[in-house]
Amino acid sequence: MKRLLGFLLVLVTLLALAVGAVITMVVVGVRSRDRRFIRAFTKFQRDVVNPEVLKTAGDAGQQFSVIEHVGRKTGKAYETPVGARRDGDGWVVSLVYGREASWVQNLLAAGSGVLHTDGRRHRVDGFEIVPIDSAPLPEDEAKAITFFGITEALRLHDAGEVDEASVPAADTAGEES
């Protein structure tokens, strides 16, 4: 019995160290803006995390919204989950992976997109990249932003609600976040 408990203790310790190493790697990778890390991590997020988040993102009462955008290279419609916060006549989204993220580049190139948030779809335009300090964020989110070293946000101007029928079908796996 003592031997089994010792084995379990070692196993739990190794698991905790592995989880700690992964968390450290993610924080360091995001803070350093290492392109190789960001590319690999966003591919994992796009292929594994986003499909699950997209099942409820944008629905009334959900934490995450969905930005619907058109690929500047592919011309395909994509959906990417984002954390949009209301800000005056629009929204603000913290740029976790910076302004180089594909969804950001797609929006900037197209000049508009659709934000699905709280059960409604809004055409968004008039994009502006701003310092994260000027974005209205809840305190718990502000702490995470500081921890990950996020420095910019994207302001989205609300250009009005969109009729469901006018929104093209999207690749629900999403594009790079």
Rank of each mutant, 00 (worst) to 15 (best):
G119T: 03
D133R: 14
G126N: 09
A109T: 14
N106A: 00
A110N: 12
F127N: 10
R121D: 07
A135V: 10
R121E: 02
G113L: 09
V130H: 04
L108R: 14
G111K: 05
D118K: 11
Q105Y: 00
N106Y: 04
A109D: 10
E128L: 10
G119W: 09
R120C: 07
P131C: 12
L108T: 07
S134A: 14
T117R: 05
V104N: 09
T117D: 12
S134H: 00
D118M: 09
V130M: 12
V114Q: 03
V124I: 15
L107Q: 07
A135L: 07
H116F: 10
G119F: 07
G111S: 09
A109L: 02
P131H: 03
G119Q: 07
R120D: 10
A110I: 04
D125A: 15
I129M: 09
I129N: 05
A109Y: 00
N106I: 01
L115W: 07
D125Q: 13
F127S: 08
I129E: 13
I129H: 08
V124K: 02
H116Y: 13
A135W: 03
S112N: 11
V104T: 11
T117C: 04
A135R: 01
R120Y: 08
R121K: 07
E128Q: 15
P131L: 11
V114E: 03
V114K: 02
T117H: 14
I132S: 03
A135E: 00
I129A: 14
G126T: 04
V114W: 08
L107A: 09
D133K: 12
S134G: 01
L115Y: 08
I129Q: 05
V114T: 15
D125Y: 04
S112P: 02
L108M: 14
P136W: 11
T117Q: 12
G111H: 09
N106L: 04
L115R: 09
